[in-house]
Structure formats: C-alpha cells, structure tokens
Nucleic acid binder design. Structure first.
Length: 258
DNA sequence: ATGGCGCCTCCGAGGCGA
C-alpha cells in the first residue's frame, strides 16, 4: 500500500499536475494540503473520474486539506484538530482506509517569529501532540502525513544560516516535532535514509529549484504498527521540475499488507 | 534589507506562503 503526501499549493492551479501524478504513480492513499478551495471550487468530480474517493476539509482562498483513496471511499475519522473551538483554519483531517488510519496535516508556518503567528504554530503543535497521543493509544497502523513546516535538523536545509531566524528551524518548533519521535512515532524518510540531504520543498523565488536549494518539511510519521510494515519510502523529486509545479513535491511510503 | 514567484480574491492590487 503506497501512501503519499503532497502540498499542491492550490488544487485548481495544480489539477493537471495532480492528475498526471496520480495516473503515473498510482498512490493508494494521498494526503493533500493547501487546496486553497472550498465548496464548488473543490474538484471532486475530477478526482472521482481519476478513480479516487475523498474526504475534504476545504477553505476559501487559503489552507484546506483532503485525503484521497484509490478505488475506495475513505471513512472520515476526524475533522479539524481538537483543542481550540475558535480555530477556523482548515488544516487537519483524518480518515480510515482499510485497517489504516491516516491524517492529512497542514501545520502553520509560523513566520514571522516571534509573534502571534509563531504562537499559533506552537499552540497548534501542542494540540497535534495531544491528538497523536490518542491515536498512538489505539495501537493501530496510523500515518500522520503532511506539510509540518518544520525543518527537523540542520541536515534538512540547504542553508542553516539563511534559515536561522525562520520559524521552521526554531528550537521550539524542533522540540515539539521531536516529541512525536519521543512518543514512539517514526519519521519514515529518515528511517529509510538515516543521513543525507533530502528536500521536499524548493522556493519559487531566487532560482531555488535550479540551485537545488530546498528543505525537508513534508513528513510521514508512523505509529509502531505502521513502522513495522514500512518497506519503502521516497520523494518524487522530478515533479518539482515540471511545468506549473507546486513548490512542494510528493513524498511517499510503501507499507506491507497486514 | 528587500524582493524575488506564484496562488488566492474578485479587478488592480494586496494578502499569504516558507
């Protein structure tokens, strides 16, 4: 079972790229982020025609997440991250597909820091950790996949110096991310590739793609039962170089059947 | 230091991202 995460940066602007990737790579489960669409603007029909059932948590203009399942209907397991009824940003959805529980995560960027956006990021991470505790306790295969907006270590960016004041590298952001690992969640890419520079995002600006100046911020975190089934992982890097690409590229894992 | 690029909304330009 192939499970992928892809920050599309506008699902309508990215529709040809998304359909092409689904057709070429045939992922079984896909976590999408940054739909930047809601209601009628969600291309539900195009996804169905491509053979994917879906659960959506859209938002007009910004944010928006979804989970797709190939030749299946995902069962919604949760919508919105618990812990703040005032939070109206669409950044989190969960679904069950077969015996696997998947969450699609669009963690707040948090820039500029310090400031209210950074505070929101850290509070959101606390809520994510609380939800992760609950999912962990189920002792089931669970995959928390998405755009975490955290560069976990200095090895995960092309330039430590350029990012030293960025919300993505701050000690508080990294400490909260590390608590997932401390709880028992496995960073799938690092489990398969313990060292080396692996990017999942390249800025549109300043020739970042051409210079291969990226970061690793899209992660798939696996519960112990899921980690036991991990048999492959990778980054579909070439899609970042295609016409009208997102600034992120898909990241995927392969889990053995139960 | 700033803006660079691209997407969004709803019409010329500003907000937002990372």
């Amino acid at each position: 079972m192939k499970i992928a995460t892809y920050n599309v940066n506008g699902i309508n602007a990215r529709l040809p790229r998304l359909l092409e990737w689904l057709d070429e790579q045939k992922p079984d489960i896909v976590c999408l982020q940054e739909l930047k669409a809601d209601g009628e603007r969600i291309p539900e029909k195009a996804m169905a025609e491509a053979g994917y059932g879906a659960v959506w948590h859209g938002q007009k203009g910004f944010n928006g997440v979804a989970i797709l399942a190939r030749e299946a209907e995902p069962r919604e397991f949760g919508r919105g991250l618990p812990g703040d009824p005032e939070d109206e940003q669409s950044r989190y959805i969960e679904a069950e597909i077969g015996d696997v529980i998947v969450a699609s995560i669009y963690l707040p960027n948090g820039n500029p820091q310090p400031g209210p956006k950074f505070d929101y990021k850290l509070q959101w991470m606390e809520r994510l950790l609380a939800r992760a505790e609950e999912l962990f306790a189920l002792e089931r295969p669970v995959v928390l996949a998405g755009d975490y907006n955290v560069i976990p270590t200095d090895e995960d960016t092309h330039s430590v110096d350029a990012m030293k004041n960025d919300a993505l590298t701050q000690p508080e952001s990294r400490a909260a991310f590390r608590r997932l690992a401390a709880m028992g969640w496995t960073d799938a890419i690092r489990a398969r590739f313990p060292s080396g520079k692996i990017w999942t995002y390249w800025d549109y600006q300043a020739g970042a793609w051409q210079r291969d100046a990226g970061f690793r911020i899209d992660h798939l975190m696996l519960s112990p039962v899921a980690a036991d089934r991990l048999c492959a992982a990778g980054v579909d890097k070439e899609y970042r170089g295609r016409e009208k690409a997102s600034d992120h590229t898909p990241v995927w894992i392969e889990l053995a059947e139960a």
